[in-house]
Design a protein around this nucleic acid. Structure first.
Lengths: 224, 224
DNA sequence: CCGGGTTTTCAGGTTAACCTTATCTTACAA
DNA sequence: TTGTAAGATAAGGTTAACCTGAAAACCCGG
């Protein structure tokens, strides 16, 4: 009665639950459905299927959590995803903002054997090109010490550390603004009434909406 | 009316037709079905779908041929397959007889952009680890000058150049016998009544059935 | 030229993953 | 506490890719 390495669809569900679960607590099905671009009815159906396989636990009207087994499978997919991103970006020279969607397809076609070998080949990198940690067996993911850009105060400086959760549109948008991981930024002002954050860099001014800023994390830097 | 990069199933059909089409002439649907492990009815259905998309041409009771467009798509899949095999074997160090099935999954998840970059990264290799040529745009695949092991006469010596078509069982079997590409063999005798070929190598004797031998190609070597 | 074996088609069935519409049920907040 | 929005379920439909079984069309060798 093995759940023989799941299919793409199931993997996407598990991965997405894992991504949305960072803020602790059960993930509402509507959030899942929204992120996956399916109806809540479809998502509910699928969640039940996954529950039957012992991969998630659904508490009606609350949300869903991954079981131990579901978590392991999700991690495996995420691991493969982030390793491919590293390979595509570092070795194949593909763009920072396109490796995400390319890896999204490869991740489901990757045998654990390949993931393992790829990890070794890349020298066990700590993170993907967008700064997210690469899960490894027997390594509890240490709490990241970064904070979203939205927590900066005017005058603060910081280095962008990661983007989470990743999505094509966001990454493309950030790449356009040249706000990629490793970029140094200093916050000039926060426009009132939920207006954008304004960053001033040598000769350029960048406006970043709150929605986007909440998904970009950074590590504050002491002024020189 | 784009046929927007096909799905896995269709790609497998195209790829398989391409593989079976080496012996010129239309490929019978039964052969296709056999190779893909589906019923002839299912294969017929699918072939009709592919025909509707202008990828193959089906001549009833004769067989099917790839159209220009179908051929291009098949080549793209094969190209990606063989490049992945090279990468998995040469860079990741995975075994000669397992990279085939691993690449079989990756090939359908590979964007042309990735194929292109991978090709460059690998230095535009001429063949996959099993000796089959890697198709490239604007390069007519030059006729290979090798012949199947079955054409050797007792006393002949040769170097194994490729295995075609590839399959898990065959590759595993050959790996067991240490009859991989590049191996030097000399034919000792051919057992009558469709018996196996007998190769004698320093201290070892290898028996290879006719079925298998017909799929292994070699280039004869003049005796020293 | 005819009959047996291969191909094709027809009919009907299955599964997974979706969909919509509509009707409950529940949680929470005013 | 009660109304409403969010969530769950029910019912019925779609599509792609499979399946079996059975009938019809065709090809070719004797």
């Amino acid at each position: 009665m093995k759940h023989d390495s799941f299919n793409e669809s199931a993997e996407m569900y598990l991965k997405t639950v894992s991504e949305l679960a960072v803020n602790e607590g059960p993930v509402p099905i509507s959030a899942l459905a929204g992120r996956l671009g399916v109806s809540t009815v479809s998502a509910t159906e699928m969640v039940h299927r996954l529950q039957d396989h012992g991969l998630v636990e659904h508490q009606p009207y609350k949300g869903i959590c991954l079981t131990e087994c579901g978590y392991r499978q999700a991690s495996e997919v995420i691991r493969s995803h982030r390793l491919w991103e590293r390979f595509l970006a570092d070795d194949l020279g593909l763009a920072w903002d396109e490796v995400h969607s390319l890896a999204c397809r490869l991740e489901h076609a990757t045998d654990p054997k390949v993931t393992e070998a790829l990890d070794a080949y890349l020298g066990y990198p700590a993170t993907c090109p967008h700064g997210n940690p690469i899960p490894r067996h027997h390594s509890t993911p240490s709490e990241p010490e970064d904070c979203p850009l939205t927590e900066l105060r005017p005058g603060d400086s910081a280095v962008i550390t990661r983007v989470h959760p990743e999505s094509d549109e966001l990454l493309e948008y950030l790449a356009d603004l040249e706000l990629v991981t490793g970029t140094y930024v200093s916050l000039f002002e926060v426009v009132p009434f939920n207006g954008p954050l304004v960053f001033k860099e040598r000769e350029r001014t960048v406006y970043l909406g709150l929605e986007a800023a909440a998904l970009v994390f950074c590590k504050p830097v002491e002024e020189a």
